[in-house]
Amino acid sequence: MLGEGILKGLAETARNFAGSFVSAERLTTVQYPEQRIAPIEATRDFPFLVYDGKDWEAGMRCVACQICEKECPPKCIYIVKSTDKKPDALGKMQIYPTRFDIDISVCMSCQICVEVCPFEAIKMDTEFELSTTDRFGGLLLDRKQLSKSNEHYHRIHPTEAAEVDARLAGEKAKSDAKAKAATAAAAAKAAAAPASSAAAPSPAATDAAPAASAALAETDVAPGGNGAGNPAVGPADGESRA
């Protein structure tokens, strides 16, 4: 009959109304500032930059590739690339952002920056008490404010962080293996070259292997050596700009 649904609905709300007075477990509300519930693991609000180790500047994973800046739908990321390089956490020489700003008043928490970052350098934070009295400057976070340690990442998103770490370790192992293979190949070449061209006597050939490995050690250092002049000023430079 017409109107039956309305009566049923009214009965349902009346039951809830009365029920909320008699049974406390109906009330799911928490008295927030005094009482808190731990955020669920998938919570996210604004991005932060992950760094490895102790020093946020040295350990910053971001290599200023600017992919996130291009992909961010509301364009709230602003990056300035460095002109020099500094070693990243793996010891590889990389450029780094001398400026990395996110305007969280514009950010819409879409997580696209996280999805596109090839270096696992930017992740979503769970910090939500970000109110400030300065609605422009206070909500524009610079790279120092954005940097949070990998431990923090592990604390807020344990599963995800473990996955990321495993992936990074895998990548590192792979790149190490590749480097090793490359060095081995280079060593073989180096070993073969003197052997064929100089046609040295057999004691010399046995000697060649350590010599080649020494040479390899040299080449291993060489990339570092190449840029070594610049990184020395790099951090200082960055500091002055920050």
Binding site: T13, N16, F17, S20, F21, R26, L27, T28, T29
Partner: peptide, 10 residues
């Protein structure tokens, strides 16, 4: 208050 109670809030 009433709406809150109907929705099981305070």
């Amino acid at each position: 208050k009433g709406l809150g109670r109907i929705q099981n809030r305070l």
